[in-house]
Design a binder for these strands. Structure first.
Lengths: 202, 202
DNA sequence: CAGGCATGTTACCGATCAGTAACTTCGCCG
DNA sequence: CGGCGAAGTTACTGATCGGTAACATGCCTG
């Protein structure tokens, strides 16, 4: 592993892999999201990435580990999206939720959307031992935690109840997206969230 | 079922296949629901049903067609559940929705639950040509239609908006079930539905 | 008993799956 | 130029995928 002339400056990062690994990873992410995890094999990935299987296995220990990486990537991407959407409304939890739902509706209605990659993985990955399973579980737990925290911050009458309800609205939109070509019921998500927050006096 | 000496009454149904087909089908339904569609192969099904592949292909034209049958079965089962839950509350749409959500929460929290088989199929089946795809789409469309009809019947201020919101709550519960071992946010679904209906003056 | 039909058995097909070995080529840098 | 590492190439493994052919049973009924 660690090559780097040991004498001077061992280059903190492991030389930042040139490109093949990134090309494979990017391709895999798109294919997994668009067609599902089980539906996409290694051959399909390396084919689409214009490389070969050996180059793949030089960069990734196994498909399952690649899947876990894909899910970690989706997780990180999701939270940076969240933080970005929320940023303009410091200490305004209600506005934060509204911004989140507005952005969520837009994102989910776009024609490239296939819902939430993490949620889809929750359907496809059943085995507890799969390295991606833990990523999915902790992702969804964090969503619940954050919605409840927001509900608390906005002084809702029953914060846990409101937080859960908001999460259900969001997750439901992801799921519905898969069967309704234009998004379907998701379009009502923002107003539903507002109605709930109003009713909770927040 | 119907025995009937063949001399009279030629039994309109094709003699109601004895049992192998049913054994296979029942086994397949359980495996598909528990482990997912793509994760379960023909060999696994016939193995679990204590038969062999030939007997399978004498009863079903292909795996895809079996999957479609599985989904049609889930669909029929779902609507008979719905009608049953709703039956005691004729012309009381609000009570019908409450009964539906109460039953939904109970069902979804049970430890055998793996959410909604149709929704899970929406994740796994991406190809438009797959015979199961149409079943899933029409199932979800009908859910939306019914929720909107209920919202209309209860004279909600904005029936389409309320109907969609109720659907999102329900679908969200199915999805959350897959990551939260005890059901998670679903437990709040009934109260959320009530809050929404209250707010819509229904 | 004879016939017929539902089922079981075995072996196979070609395709694809995840994963590996051995060798060659390319491009960069000293 | 010489060398080294990253990448490409080809061929392969053994398992599993969906699906089929040919044949051997069993069992019920006429």
């Amino acid at each position: 592993m660690s090559v780097a002339k040991p004498e001077d400056l061992p280059a903190c990062e492991p030389a930042a892999r040139p490109r093949v690994r990134d090309r494979i990873f990017e391709t895999a992410c798109e294919l997994f999201y668009r067609h599902g995890i089980r539906a996409v094999g290694i051959d399909a990935i390396v084919g689409a990435a214009s490389t070969n299987k050996m180059s793949f296995y030089r960069s990734f220990p196994s498909k399952d580990e690649l899947v876990a990486d894909y899910l970690r990537h989706k997780d990180a991407h999701f939270w940076s999206w969240w933080d970005e959407v929320v940023a303009p409304y410091q200490n305004q939890p209600r506005q934060q939720v509204e911004a989140l739902f507005e952005a969520h509706v837009n994102k989910t209605c776009s024609k490239e959307s296939r819902g939430c990659g993490l949620a889809n993985a929750a359907v496809e990955i059943v085995e507890d031992e799969h390295p991606g399973r833990a990523v999915v579980v902790s992702h969804k737990s964090e969503i619940r935690r954050r919605f409840r925290a927001l509900a608390t911050a906005m002084k809702a009458r029953d914060p846990e109840q409101l937080g859960d309800a908001l999460m259900l609205l969001m997750e439901g939109g992801y799921l519905a997206r898969l069967t309704f070509p234009k998004g379907g019921p998701v379009v009502s998500a923002l107003r539903a969230a507002q109605t709930l927050m109003d009713a909770h006096g927040a």
